[in-house]
Design a protein around this nucleic acid. Structure first.
Lengths: 151, 151
DNA sequence: AGAATATAAGACACTCAGCTCTGAATTAAA
DNA sequence: TTTAATTCAGAGCTGAGTGTCTTATATTCT
């Protein structure tokens, strides 16, 4: 697993919010989201709290409350979500887990892994929530867990 | 973490054995290896047992015993070690952890991730223990944990 | 308008599972 | 008899997921 479960759920939820906000303004209910994405409500809440405190989302309590994107969906990238939840270490860690591995004292696969990591970074950076959400609708892509995984 | 700890330790130990067997014939003691690589003896033992039962190593009990490569160091790739310990799933899993993700019903980052995974596979496949061990000596590369991490 | 109520986020402590790591007893070879 | 791998049982830790209670706010009712 490159990304933590929390991080993948965070990405899926962000895309969900982006799709909803393209359809109608206002806040998206976490309860509704957890049902549709088949993600545990409390766990999802915790993840969205992190995204809120990272400044990617805004939240509102009470009836008609929920969460919404703070900036325009075209202004937020998947990378932003990954960094908010898993942090930069995903793109820094040595493949062999060697603590001192770096350009000065590389491990045997350092250069190759650095390249691959960089590609991953670019991939995430190049994808905004807006574009990706649109692509999901157009191509009918998978982006929720199957019911099998519901709790 | 792309690879499990056990897997990275397995790679490091395999490279250690390849280096030793380039210098002298015979078995490499697990005890000695665990000291030099700063990996817990019992944990390392378990990992090497997996490599032995996977047919990559042979083991011998008693004095002068230990483990040795079953085939020539140039005939074993890092990929072999990864497959023996973490299995093929490393190179199959969806980046977003979506169970049904595949070419028919891809997730939003499916294609990009498939490419990156493939590169990683090729990288591991192209590196034999022999070459890599030689490179370590020539370039004085890092391949053991620092003492700080000793147990 | 003001109070009551329902809804939903937020905080926190907890369980559970899987991976990591340890210890003690066993077995085989020199 | 010593040395070193093997086996197995289980402890410890971390990340994943759950339950309960608290806090905030929009809506509804008087």
């Amino acid at each position: 697993m490159v990304l933590s479960k929390a991080c993948t759920y965070g990405i899926l939820a962000s895309l969900f919010i982006a799709r909803e906000s393209a359809k109608s303004k206002g806040y998206v209910s976490i309860g509704k989201m957890s049902k549709e994405l088949h993600i545990s409500f409390h766990f999802l809440t915790k993840i969205l709290q992190e995204l809120t405190s990272a400044g990617l989302l805004v939240s509102m309590k009470g009836p008609k409350g929920g969460v919404a994107l703070k900036r325009d969906a075209g202004e937020i990238t998947i990378l932003d979500v990954v960094l908010a939840i898993d942090g930069i270490k995903v793109f820094r860690e040595c493949l062999l887990g060697l603590p001192g591995c770096g350009d000065e004292k590389p491990c045997p696969v350092h250069d190759e892994w650095a390249e691959i990591r960089e590609e991953l970074y670019q991939t995430f950076q190049s994808k905004t929530l807006g574009e990706t959400a649109q692509k999901i609708d157009e191509l009918n892509l998978r982006f929720a867990l199957p019911e099998l995984y519901e709790r």
